[in-house]
Nucleic acid binder design. Structure first.
Lengths: 231, 231
DNA sequence: GGACTTATTGTTAAATGAACACCAATTTAT
DNA sequence: ATAAATTGGTGTTCATTTAACAATAAGTCC
């Protein structure tokens, strides 16, 4: 094989860290590999990038094939390209993470018969390939992102309570001490990005909380006026 | 060509945004392309990744071949993989940026006969490929990085004055108003990361300033104790 | 010695962040 | 219907950080 040919003896893939939130824990959607290599191991959903497909498109496709969802939050994080990261050849992978509303994920659609399951991020064990490293990198990125841009709402239902929002932040940031309830509420409400709905939480065995909605348009407007989100 | 084969009809490259600082402006090292495509256009230095070469190694190699430098600051930023970003085929590129001391760059070493030149980042015109986009992304990353980690020192000589340090920050951040001199000094000195040397600036036609050195070991220690750099 | 240039230093007011505890509203059990 | 249990909601104070701001000091050059 000539040197020039060997340059093309390689492929690239995307891997997608799909995050979800179940009300108390941050979760990641993993699939169990049905074939070698790493048969039986849990892994990040991913696929080779089609020859005439953009990277972002490939990541969206992986997400849609697994969850049926389109148009959700998706961000590229980094390329992973260690020479021996894939036992069958030279494959570099571009890592993405996406944020979905866990309730939107309804069992596995047809195209992916493989078993897919939510795992608590804190309890993920040894994954296939270098997927632990990818997961950690994406988690780190998410921790940062969620403090500087209002992406956390992507993980919550459209209507949520302030306690749910705070639990989300506590779950993602996983700080030694939980956020202070009063300070958190003060801060988030002072941004004027939440709309208080004329509805209350239902079906709880205690005082029901007010429901809020995130106002994305207001956020865009504020940003254009120099505002920057910060928690 | 079978579908499987076509997956391998692709290549990956690295492109390196090499930043330097000349005392007043942030610069980027560009090369002028000697061959098609984009012959004659300025471009980021880059190369295909060798089949058994790690991505970081390839970026280091590109840097060394151009500048003769090793062991300098280098960070991967992102993959760029739009289908038609390269006119001759499917090539995704992994973008890196590096920070070098501009005085260490001594004309072009033999292996790269191509013309390489420092350009003020603010005056860069239309580059080859999607290199303007890559440059902008890396610049944005650098702006953030320089405020949260002490990487700015990589662009300065080992001994520097506080004014030089501030000019570096002003040049990189390019804020509507320059940083306040007194506040900047207070902040940077309060971190206890700079060692005041028993030497003064020389060769200037005015009161010479004290020289300082960055103490990287102290920084590592402080970080392990929970410190985080912030300007 | 005088003119010139840049270096060095501190205070105050405003905004932000951190710490902290009690009453309110609802459901469930008796 | 009352009490117990559970979570929701709310303000103040103190400490810290940030922002704004100007006069004197130490050199060089003529």
């Amino acid at each position: 094989m000539s040197e020039i040919e060997s340059f093309f003896k390689s492929a690239f893939s995307v891997d997608n860290v799909i995050f979800g939130f179940d009300g108390s824990e941050l979760k990641v959607l993993l699939i169990q590999r049905g074939a070698a290599p790493f048969k039986g191991k849990w892994a990040l959903p991913g696929d080779l990038v089609y020859p005439n497909e953009n990277l972002d498109t490939a990541a969206e496709r992986v997400l849609e094939q697994l969850t049926g969802l389109r148009g959700v939050y998706l961000e590229q994080v980094k390329a992973f390209g260690a020479v021996n990261r894939h036992p069958l050849g030279r494959v570099i992978t571009i890592a993405y993470y996406s944020l979905i509303k866990i309730s939107d994920f309804n069992v596995t659609p047809a195209s992916f018969a493989q078993s897919a399951r939510w795992h608590a991020v804190s309890e993920v064990e040894e994954l296939a390939f270098d997927h632990n490293e990818i997961l950690n990198t994406c988690l780190k990125r998410l921790k940062h992102k969620v403090r500087t841009e209002p992406v956390g709402f992507e993980l919550l239902p459209p209507k949520f309570t302030l306690t749910e929002l705070q639990q989300l932040y506590d779950a993602i940031l996983n700080l030694p001490k939980k956020l202070d309830k009063r300070n958190f509420r003060k801060k988030i409400l002072s941004m004027n990005l939440l709309v208080e709905l004329p509805e209350l939480q239902e079906g709880v065995a205690h005082r029901p909380a007010k429901l809020y909605q995130f106002d994305g348009e207001k956020y865009e407007q504020f940003v254009s006026e120099g505002f920057s989100f910060d928690i």
